[in-house]
Every structure is written in structure tokens, then in C-alpha cells.
Nucleic acid binder design. Structure first.
Lengths: 64, 64
DNA sequence: GCCTCGTGTCAAGCAAGCATGACACAATGT
DNA sequence: ACATTGTGTCATGCTTGCTTGACACGAGGC
């Protein structure tokens, strides 16, 4: 599962900590998702999409 | 997190077992998701959306 | 030099998403 | 009466998502 989180964050000049605060998760979770260590849960994916005002499919793409 | 899985399945007259096979998960997982015991992972949500040819947001809605 | 900020990463622990196997029960078919 | 099918649920166990706390490192500012 790939994601455009790092780019979207860079476009807004946000730190991982700031994004984490907006999403209500830890900085380590944001970092782990960005670096591909694991995928977010579905509820968190919805929060991410809502924050960037995008659809989930515009941010995450299954890497198969 | 609500979902329209039961309805979509009924529209196609599929059993939980058949849907589980299509998705590559167990019947119990399909049942647990339908009955709201837990939410699917993001990869599974993508597979579900692909199977029904819909967007994730058309099937799942955060219940906040 | 030092300090701060942003990022990456590790460990330990808890919670949630899967698995398999089993059982109960209603509805239907033979 | 018996077997089958679909659904709900339980127990147990493994893997993944997420937490807190900590440490290392590079880039910049003082």
C-alpha cells in the first residue's frame, strides 16, 4: 500500500508532529505510515482523507 | 464505522462464504464486519470496493 | 561551540484485525 | 425424520496498528 502522505504534508509545510496532532495519533504512527511500515486503519484513513479534503483512493493505492 | 456490505451482498444473492472467498478472507471475518464487530483493514477495504466496483466512501461511512 | 527542530528508529505493551475450529439454530429440501 | 445451507457466535492464537518513552543523527540558528 503506497501513500502520498509525505508529499501532501510537504505541500503544506507541516511537520510529522503537526500532522499527528491534526489526526489525533502519535508522531511515530505518522512516520510509520509514511515510511511504509504499516497501513493505517480504515477509520484513520478516513480522517486523513477528510483532513486533506480528498478521497481515500486519491491518497492511498494498493501496491499490487 | 457503518457499512453497506450486507445490502450489497443481498443484491447479488451471495452468501457470506461466497463473499469471503471472493475477498480472500474467512467467513467469520465477513460476518464480523457486517455485524459491526470490527472494521476491515485498509487493504481489505480496497478489495471490497474493487469487488463491488465502488469507492470506499460509498460502502463505508464513519459513524461520528 | 551549543541548542533546537525534524526525522528515523528501537523496545515494550495494549488493542484491533485476521485465522481456524467448533457449536447452535432456523429454514429448506429430500 | 434426516441432511444441508446460511448465519451468528464462541474460544484460542497470531499478526498488525497504535501507544509511550527513549536515543541518534543532520541541518540551522544563536
Amino acid at each position: 500500500m503506497k501513500n502520498r502522505l509525505k508529499v501532501l504534508r510537504a505541500e503544506r509545510d507541516w511537520s510529522q508532529q503537526h500532522l499527528a496532532d491534526e489526526l489525533g495519533v502519535s508522531r511515530q504512527s505518522v512516520n510509520a505510515i509514511e515510511t511504509g511500515k504499516y497501513d493505517p486503519s480504515l477509520p484513520l484513513a478516513f480522517r486523513i482523507a477528510a483532513l486533506f479534503d480528498m478521497r481515500i483512493e486519491e491518497i492511498f493505492t494498493p501496491d499490487d
